[in-house]
Amino acid sequence: MTASQQYNERLERRRRKGLVFSVLLFLATTSGLVVLVTLIVDVVVQGAQWLDWEFLTRFPSRIPENAGIKSAIVGSLWMILLTAAISVPIGVASALYLEEYAPRGWLLKIIQININNLAGIPSVVYGILGLTLFVRFFALGRSLLAGALTMALLILPIIVISAQEALRAIPEGIRESAFALGATRRQVVWSHLLPMSAPSIMTGVILALSRAIGETAPLIMIGALTFIAFLPTSALDPFTVLPIQIFNWTARPQADFQGLAAAGIIILMVVLFLMNLSAILLRNYFEKYRAR
């Protein structure tokens, strides 16, 4: 057998292996997708008949026909707005300090490791923290504010880390040339670093908030009520949110409530979708603003 024949034979085998590999990758991709599609179809089939204007505008009720999700939608919106208002400024400020101001050294390393660890702590632990700290110690009660503070703690590490990465991605030449023009650090941060990193920070924030809107465990821990037949009028009112309302309905034996839960899931998914959409639009806007 000549060397060339040997190579040809190997080439065949290499091609076959390559084909098998690409098929495996394709299957991996579709398996996730198939599960997701099944889930969506199942939920829509179950919940579609319950979805109407009444469902959106009514308060929860013991009678399935009268039950609505109004208080949960409003609660979730309050929750997200408050959480964002608390966590975004603190998170971005922390990232700025860690990346641009903090002196390099062992202390910074320890802080960094801790932030990375905090991002991986189970959310129920944050719930316990929130219960002790905000509900009891600061006596905020089972209020929106206590819930939002807890949620803000939960997503803070994610925001800090993504903002740090956004800042690190800015070329060193930008900082150097700005400093070389006699700018102070604050001027470099406000004129260049923040506008340039805003689109990526925004992405991180939206991902974090999307996680917060679907979180249930910490809010159950701090005692977000499920039967709320009124709308919160201030941050100190009791509240419920979409995932808790859904959780509550699924826990009931009657088939009608299963349908209501499915309808609730559809609403939650729509809210999530709208959030992500607005994130993309906002990000595009900022990118355009930066390019101008």
């Binding site: 930008i174 006699g182 700018a183």
Partner: peptide, 30 residues
Amino acid sequence: VRRRIGMVFQKPNPFPKTIFENVIWGARVN
């Protein structure tokens, strides 16, 4: 010191802004 002693770097590194803004920024911050 850095205002009095200007510096041009190895790689051209304009800010991601307009030509006008690039020139005026340093003067403005000072």
